[in-house]
């Protein structure tokens, strides 16, 4: 396998999206090619660095209810029970 072909397949290799045969061929190439090995390692590190980002918080229920109320108003669409919920929110009951 040529380096260029191997490098094109590294993304799929990392995503485990290659057939067993093709994966084996990439493995063989990487084992004997120092440059492609570095390419694979640094690519793997970059991807895990990105996917290892911390969990994102959820917005507050208060925000969601306020926005839902606004959407209903602006689209002139009545929401069952929404009026009461927003009143409760304003009164701090929820």
């Amino acid at each position: 396998m040529e380096c260029e072909t191997a490098r094109e397949l590294l993304g799929n290799y990392i995503d485990q999206d290659l057939t067993e045969t093709l994966r084996g061929t990439v493995d063989e190439h990487v084992a004997t090619c120092a440059q492609c090995k570095v390419d694979l390692t640094t690519l793997q590190q970059a991807i895990s660095s990105l996917t290892g980002t911390k969990t994102i918080e959820t917005p507050s229920p208060w925000f969601a209810e306020r926005l839902l109320h606004r959407l209903a108003q602006e689209s002139d669409t009545p929401l069952a029970g929404a009026e009461k919920k927003v009143e409760d929110l304003q009164l701090g009951l929820w």
Partner: peptide, 24 residues
């Protein structure tokens, strides 16, 4: 039909993914 429940369900179903995307 101007169904408010349909609107609410769409909003509640997608609000968190939209927020998560925006936080990226």
């Amino acid at each position: 039909d101007g169904d408010g429940r349909a609107m609410e369900t769409l909003f509640r179903r997608h609000m968190e993914p939209v927020y998560r995307l925006a936080r990226r």
